[in-house]
Design a protein around this nucleic acid. Structure first.
Length: 314
DNA sequence: AAACCGTGGCC
DNA sequence: TGGCCAAGGTT
């Protein structure tokens, strides 16, 4: 009662936070007993990856490596292998590197400030703010794709946020962040969840939205997006080839003979992967591209070479 | 700044 | 069916 006026939430913010209180998903990294390490692992896994795909991997990781020190004690290749098919395996490598830094420089405790978190590999603006807010209760401006979309529609009347995060969006997000820490965390989590569950990129469920009456996008007549998102090609790309090679390396503990990547048939892993790699190889009149890909993977530390062939670092 | 980096599900 | 999308980071 009787709070200072400048600490008050706007009606829209109160409505979204109230909606979150009864509609939030029961995700394990939101549990009270979840450690900062658990939050950090979840945030890395969730980068560009749907929740449903993350859930089983996150459970496995936290059981196997309940602390940063536990992960740091194993070779990075184990992290990459346990990453499974989450995609962007560099995330696993960087998370392992972050665990090493946390173990050595922070006595095994995940740091709790945005600046410290951002200095760790694989942690950028979003993840640093998210871990600080959700694991430590820090007032930090969390801006992810969901929050950007919610704020673009609700306050800017746009169908979608800009192609890349810009200064105006950041300023808007900062101006909206509640001053009091607990409320700021609630706002971050609630606006993100609204974007994930109702205010979705396609077919938003406005009928269920707690702030539909004050939504600038609805008021404007739900205009179409101003731009056309750039699609990312896949078939025949380096990414597809890298993915196929990584799948082969993940599937076995023993090094894959180097020549096996250039000769047919590739009989490692399951049949689907074998077909995939053979197909890609057949498309190449030269092997220079595959050679380059393998060198890239070696240089990045996603793979290591030995006399016996190529394998995950171990 | 724009391109690159995996994967799979959905309409 | 295939383009779009998913709690981004790095160069």
């Amino acid at each position: 009662m009787d709070r200072s006026p400048h600490l008050a939430l706007s009606p829209e913010q109160s409505a979204i936070i109230d909606w979150f209180a009864t509609n939030a998903r029961d995700l394990p990294w939101r549990a009270a007993e979840c450690t900062p390490w658990g939050v950090l692992v979840s945030e890395i896994m969730l980068q560009q990856t749907p929740v449903v795909r993350v859930l089983p991997r996150w459970q496995e990781w936290l059981e196997r490596w309940p602390t940063p020190a536990a992960l740091a004690a194993e070779p990075s290749g184990e992290a990459v292998r346990a990453w499974g098919r989450l995609g962007y395996p560099r995330r696993a490598l960087r998370l392992h590197a972050a665990a090493l830094r946390i173990t050595e420089e922070y006595d095994g405790e995940v740091p709790g400030t945005v600046a410290e978190l951002k200095s760790l590999p694989g942690i950028g603006d979003y993840t640093a703010a998210a871990v600080a807010a959700f694991a430590f209760g820090v007032r930090a401006t969390v801006v992810d794709t969901n929050i950007r979309r919610v704020e673009a529609r609700l306050f800017s009347g746009l169908a979608l946020p800009a192609p890349t995060l810009n200064a105006a969006e950041m300023a808007l997000a900062e101006s909206l962040l509640p001053l009091e820490a607990t409320n700021s965390v609630r706002w971050n989590a609630a606006s993100m969840e609204l974007g994930a569950l109702l205010c979705t990129a396609r077919s938003p469920q406005c009928a269920l939205c707690p702030v539909r009456a004050s939504c600038a996008w609805i008021a404007a007549g739900e205009p179409e997006p101003i731009y056309r998102p750039k699609g990312q090609p896949w078939a025949g790309t380096d990414r597809q080839l890298r993915g196929a090679v990584m799948a082969v390396l993940r599937a076995t503990d023993s090094p894959t003979p180097w020549d096996m990547f250039f000769t047919e048939p590739v009989l490692i892993g399951d049949a689907e992967l074998s077909r995939s790699l053979r197909h890609l190889h057949a498309l190449e009149s030269e092997n220079s591209r595959l050679e380059r890909i393998l060198q890239d993977l070696l240089q990045e530390g996603l793979a290591q070479r030995s006399a016996a062939g190529l394998s995950l670092p171990g």
